[in-house]
Computed example of a mutant assay.
Amino acid sequence: MKLKRLLKNKYLFENGLSIGLNNEIVNKYDLKRREELSHEEYLQVLELAALSTSYYYLAKRDYTKKEIYNKLLQKYWEKNPIVKVIKRLEEVGYIDDKEFAISYVKTKKCGKKKIIYDLKLKGITSEVIEEALSFYEEEDELEELSRAWDKLGEKEEQKKIASLMRKGFSYGDIKRVIIKKREEEC
């Protein structure tokens, strides 16, 4: 695999991939002097670069396996090194879909349906979602729903209902909160 140095530590490979590499990788493979890498070396360079990038991403926020895989694949194009990186991150505990799902359930301020939908989009399995939902408090949902209703102010009732349903609250719960609010007013 031929490579060309573009800037200080930015390299362009013959397949069109252009990535910045840290000094450790550049020195380990002596990339300043070389113009070609074997396919195995190329994959090793990508794996080290993807690992370094994943640490950068994970320092900012938690990611699911699917999210970090997609981000790395978009940047490095090769599946095998990325799969190795994901396994490595799981082994050391930097990626844990179950912990992510539990944390997500505890912190999101929306309805159960929306939480399930969002977690599925993030690549969490149904089994893990069910387990995480055991931390979901129905009473907390009704309190959050009541606060969200009040926050919507003086809008028309139907618009409020539609807005809350988009946030994942069930129609039955919304109706319960409306009845409760009306009883409090009387």
Results as ranks from 00 to 15, higher is better:
178 I>A: 02
85 V>E: 05
17 L>F: 06
71 K>F: 04
179 I>M: 12
53 T>I: 03
87 K>L: 12
181 K>H: 10
57 Y>T: 08
37 L>Q: 07
81 P>V: 05
149 W>T: 04
64 T>D: 04
54 S>M: 10
153 G>T: 06
57 Y>I: 05
141 E>R: 02
101 A>G: 04
144 E>G: 11
61 R>I: 03
110 C>S: 12
113 K>C: 04
126 S>E: 15
87 K>I: 09
84 K>S: 13
82 I>Y: 07
38 S>M: 06
183 E>F: 07
77 W>Y: 12
116 I>S: 04
87 K>N: 15
184 E>V: 08
52 S>K: 13
139 E>C: 00
54 S>W: 04
157 E>P: 00
112 K>S: 12
55 Y>D: 14
91 E>F: 05
38 S>D: 12
108 K>E: 15
26 V>Q: 07
113 K>L: 12
135 F>G: 04
141 E>V: 01
58 L>E: 13
51 L>N: 14
154 E>D: 14
91 E>T: 11
59 A>N: 14
37 L>R: 03
55 Y>A: 07
2 K>Y: 15
106 K>S: 11
68 I>V: 10
174 I>Q: 02
10 K>Y: 14
28 K>T: 13
5 R>W: 11
147 R>I: 10
183 E>V: 08
163 S>F: 09
105 V>F: 08
133 L>T: 06
136 Y>S: 04
145 L>F: 06
176 R>P: 00
20 G>S: 15
118 D>Y: 00
173 D>Y: 04
72 L>Y: 06
31 L>W: 07
136 Y>H: 03
118 D>H: 01
185 E>Y: 08
120 K>F: 01
124 I>Y: 06
12 L>G: 02
120 K>N: 08
14 E>R: 03
31 L>G: 11
15 N>L: 09
155 K>W: 13
131 E>P: 00
10 K>C: 15
141 E>M: 06
154 E>L: 05
68 I>A: 02
48 L>A: 13
133 L>A: 07
105 V>L: 07
110 C>L: 08
181 K>N: 10
55 Y>R: 13
5 R>M: 13
94 Y>W: 10
161 I>D: 03
24 E>C: 01
109 K>R: 15
70 N>C: 00
45 V>E: 12
